[in-house]
């Protein structure tokens, strides 16, 4: 990657010989690191299971909220959180914890919405069940994850 220099040519780093560095190589390495970390963070995000999200026109951009519960409902109706499948009891326990974390003292309602990522081919019955659990645990604000309508279609 280093620049080859011909004999007798002016060396830009000659002024600080020994301690100088090539900017080009530096930019090279920086870009490589950026691409590496972008790919790694995308692949290591366990909170989002592989589901095919539906598209909505009026959806708003989702911002990352640290500590927020993300429930994934797969096509078969499995409820996955951080790569683990949850039953009703487990989901209820987690929702209670979420409620404690999201309701500020003196408030009645949670400050943040619980994110539900549902596969577009999941039967509504499975989604309704999770929504009912949310209501039982007084988590009234829910948000359904959708795909960006402007995002290009992934080739299969």
């Amino acid at each position: 990657m280093g620049a080859k220099r011909k004999k007798g040519k002016a060396d830009p780093s000659a002024a600080c010989e020994g301690g100088g560095f090539e900017m080009t190589s530096m930019i090279d390495v920086t870009f490589l690191l950026i691409i590496f970390f972008m790919c790694v963070t995308e692949l290591a995000d366990q909170s989002k299971a592989k589901v095919e999200l539906p598209v909505a026109e009026k959806a708003e951009e989702d911002t990352h909220i640290p500590g927020r519960v993300i429930i994934n409902i797969t096509e078969k109706g499995e409820r996955m959180i951080m790569g683990q499948e949850y039953d009703d009891a487990g989901l209820s326990r987690l929702m209670q914890l979420e409620r404690e974390a999201s309701v500020k003292p003196g408030d009645q309602f949670p400050s943040r919405a619980i994110l539900i990522r549902v596969d577009k081919n999941t039967e509504y019955e499975d989604v309704e069940h999770v929504m009912q659990l949310c209501m039982e645990n007084k988590l009234w604000r829910i948000a359904f994850a959708t795909k960006d309508p402007n995002a290009p279609e992934k080739r299969r």
């Binding site: 209501m135 988590l139 829910i142 359904f144 795909k147 995002a151």
Partner: peptide, 14 residues
């Protein structure tokens, strides 16, 4: 483009 941006549709339960 592979870093798919996600959107959300917020709704209140009764």
């Amino acid at each position: 483009p592979f870093k798919a941006k996600e959107m959300k549709l917020v709704n209140e339960l009764p």
